[in-house]
Simulated scan of single mutants.
Amino acid sequence: MQPVDFREFSCKECAQACDLGFDFSMAFQPIVDISSRTVFAVEALVRGTNGEGAADVFKHVNESNRYRFDQSCRVKAIRLAASLGVQSFLCINFLPNAIYKPELCIRTTLAAAQTYGFDQTKIIFEFTENERIFDQAHLLNIINHYQEIGFQTAIDDFGSGYNGLAQLADLKTNFTKIDMELIRHIDQDSARQTIVRHMTRMLEALGQTVIAEGIETAAEYEMLKSMGITLFQGYLFAKPAFESIPEIHWQD
């Protein structure tokens, strides 16, 4: 196994993919606030340089380059969002298992925000339940440190992965994104309705803001809206757009 490179990178190096041996870019998908009919945030999604899906990029990521890839993702997302004039929050996915010391690993992100003129308080770091966390205390340290310096944090894909309620009890993130597997056909499934309704109330009681992701149909949207959810992400509103911000299809 090749040794893991944990050195600090410059914004220029990360924008050029930190000598990863492969390059990639980003697509952006909005998260809309239906209560104000505004774009609450845009999520940066990894894509190949010709728009290939994330799976084509992640097949090049391994233990030796995971840290460099994570750093490059942050810088590319910030640089592109700034160039597109994004004024909303920017959601960036991070890899908790790639971070060794949060106070050191965050320096490149802070430098990128300053270099490209993007407000660091508008950054939301998401981590997914689908990445198995081997050290819960380490993840908690990352979340706490990021929040202390002004970033917001979110659990992505909640309800589908490894960690579930035990993780939710320990982590005090600002947002939780309900996974699309619970959303799909929710208008036709009373079990899913019960689960998501109670999940939403639980998260609100914990002081978290709920985001429903993967919304594809008007019927799904109407059901979730009836539960009091106001933040939505999914194809019904906009598909991810490669290196651009897509037009939003507002629902009446």
Score class of each variant (00 low, 15 high):
85 G>C: 03
185 H>G: 00
119 D>G: 03
209 T>N: 03
170 D>C: 08
203 L>P: 11
117 G>N: 09
159 G>Y: 14
149 I>E: 07
140 L>F: 01
126 E>S: 13
4 V>H: 00
217 T>F: 13
138 H>F: 14
75 V>P: 01
130 N>A: 05
61 V>Y: 11
198 H>F: 10
88 S>D: 12
138 H>G: 10
75 V>K: 01
89 F>Y: 09
84 L>I: 02
177 K>S: 11
32 V>N: 07
78 I>S: 00
139 L>M: 04
90 L>F: 05
7 R>Q: 10
160 S>H: 09
86 V>T: 10
129 E>F: 12
52 E>V: 14
208 Q>C: 07
190 S>A: 13
13 E>C: 07
30 P>N: 07
198 H>L: 10
6 F>I: 01
179 D>R: 14
62 N>F: 14
208 Q>T: 05
193 Q>C: 14
195 I>M: 14
138 H>L: 13
188 Q>R: 08
110 L>K: 03
38 T>K: 13
174 N>P: 01
95 L>C: 09
245 I>Q: 10
191 A>S: 12
44 A>L: 09
234 G>W: 00
62 N>H: 15
18 C>E: 03
63 E>P: 00
65 N>V: 00
216 E>Y: 13
150 G>N: 01
238 A>D: 05
237 F>A: 03
89 F>T: 01
239 K>Y: 13
198 H>K: 12
222 E>A: 08
122 K>T: 07
190 S>R: 10
141 N>A: 15
153 T>A: 14
56 D>T: 00
247 E>C: 13
98 A>S: 13
222 E>F: 02
123 I>M: 13
248 I>A: 02
246 P>R: 07
29 Q>I: 07
15 A>I: 07
199 M>R: 00
83 S>L: 06
203 L>Q: 12
26 M>L: 03
195 I>K: 12
46 V>A: 15
26 M>A: 06
76 K>I: 15
124 I>Q: 07
237 F>N: 04
121 T>F: 06
84 L>C: 03
128 T>D: 05
13 E>P: 09
91 C>D: 13
32 V>Q: 09
236 L>R: 08
66 R>N: 09
127 F>Y: 11
56 D>Q: 01
54 A>C: 09
41 A>E: 04
37 R>M: 06
236 L>K: 08
156 D>K: 03
240 P>D: 02
44 A>E: 07
195 I>S: 11
90 L>G: 02
12 K>W: 01
144 N>H: 14
171 L>D: 02
112 A>Y: 12
233 Q>A: 09
66 R>T: 09
210 V>H: 11
136 Q>N: 03
